[in-house]
Computed example of a mutant assay.
Amino acid sequence: MSPGPRAPRLVRPLLVAFLAVTAVDLAGLLAGSHTAHLVAKPLLMPLLAAYAAARGGPRLLVAALLCGWGGDVLLMPGADAAFLAGMGLFAAGHVCYLRLFGRARASLPAGLGYAVALAVFVVLLWPDLPGGMRVPLTCYSLLLTTMAWRAGALGRWAGAGGALFLLSDALIATGIAAWPRLPAHDFWVMLTYAAAQYLLTAGVLGSRDGASPAAVSADRAGGGVRV
């Protein structure tokens, strides 16, 4: 039997806080409020990590989310050195996720699809990337794509989280390459990123509980909030 929540009374408030701060961040990006983004973005992953810990989630999940927090903070200044350090922390988070997925069997056709998509994307992006970013971004993209594929081993919710993480970082990469941006580009980056981290968390917790990840937020201790 899997362990129950460590702090059942905090589960619902922490999830509500994560959703509320996510909404503030996204609304601030749409409104062009840089201050709202600066305040809200660094709070997202600590809140989600605290939620996972309160649910009794594994330490590797909490570590992955906190690596995401470190990456979020380092990517905010926009300097190349900080960006590379932040990318390194995100890479460490992907390693944590891969260890959580273990040896569970993932779809081979999905893996082939991800491999083809990665190869095409790197070939198209390569000429437009700054010289110092080409190799680090390619190595990071390979790790991220592997994580996205392996996430599907935990079910469709974690698989969707992995795919959204890949999409979010692909949007960032197109910005680095100075490709044309979507309208409200930063909004879409953060929407896909926040959704990705939540769905990965839901998939890991749902797999641990032996329950459907779709109901991962419904806790034994009186229920929770679903998204």
Rank of each mutant, 00 (worst) to 15 (best):
G113V: 02
G88I: 05
P42N: 01
R134L: 01
A202T: 06
G131S: 09
W157L: 15
L118E: 12
R156K: 15
A40S: 14
V123F: 12
L164A: 10
L26S: 05
G224A: 05
W179V: 08
P8E: 01
A110Y: 11
W126E: 15
W188C: 05
A177F: 04
W157V: 15
M87N: 06
F83T: 01
V189W: 05
G111Q: 00
L112F: 10
A85E: 02
L129C: 05
V204Y: 02
S168V: 05
V123P: 07
G161R: 02
P3E: 15
W157K: 15
L144H: 02
A92Y: 00
P130C: 04
R105L: 06
G203E: 09
Y51G: 08
F90L: 00
W149C: 04
V189Q: 00
L164V: 06
D72T: 04
P127N: 00
F121M: 13
M1S: 14
D219P: 09
C139S: 15
A148C: 04
L38P: 12
A20R: 12
G71K: 00
G203T: 04
F187S: 06
A64L: 01
L15A: 11
A163Y: 04
P183Y: 07
A218P: 12
P46K: 13
R99S: 10
A211F: 10
P130M: 06
T138R: 04
A31E: 03
T192F: 03
F83Q: 04
G162P: 07
A163K: 04
C96Y: 03
F165R: 05
A153Y: 04
P183M: 09
D80L: 14
R150A: 03
R220D: 15
L129S: 02
P213R: 04
L143G: 12
V16M: 10
G223L: 08
L166S: 10
A31L: 13
V135C: 08
L199C: 11
T138Q: 11
A52T: 10
W69C: 14
D72R: 06
A92R: 06
M76T: 12
R9S: 14
R9C: 13
L164M: 10
D186K: 10
A117Y: 03
H185K: 09
A40I: 01
P13C: 11
R181P: 11
P46S: 09
R55I: 07
A20S: 14
H94V: 06
A27R: 07
P13H: 08
Y51S: 09
L19M: 07
A170I: 02
L10R: 13
A79C: 08
L137E: 02
G71F: 00
A115I: 00
A36Y: 05
C96H: 02
A23T: 14
R103H: 14
V24G: 03
G113P: 07
F121T: 14
A202R: 11
M45R: 08
P213T: 01
D209G: 12
T174H: 07
A163I: 03
L142M: 13
W179Y: 11
Y114I: 09
L98W: 11
L60S: 11
A50M: 07
D128S: 15
A36C: 08
G93F: 05
P109D: 02
A163C: 09
Y97S: 07
D209C: 05
R181G: 12
V122T: 07
T201A: 09
G162L: 07
A211M: 14
H94C: 10
P127V: 00
L124W: 13
H37V: 12
V62S: 11
A50E: 06
A214P: 12
V24N: 05
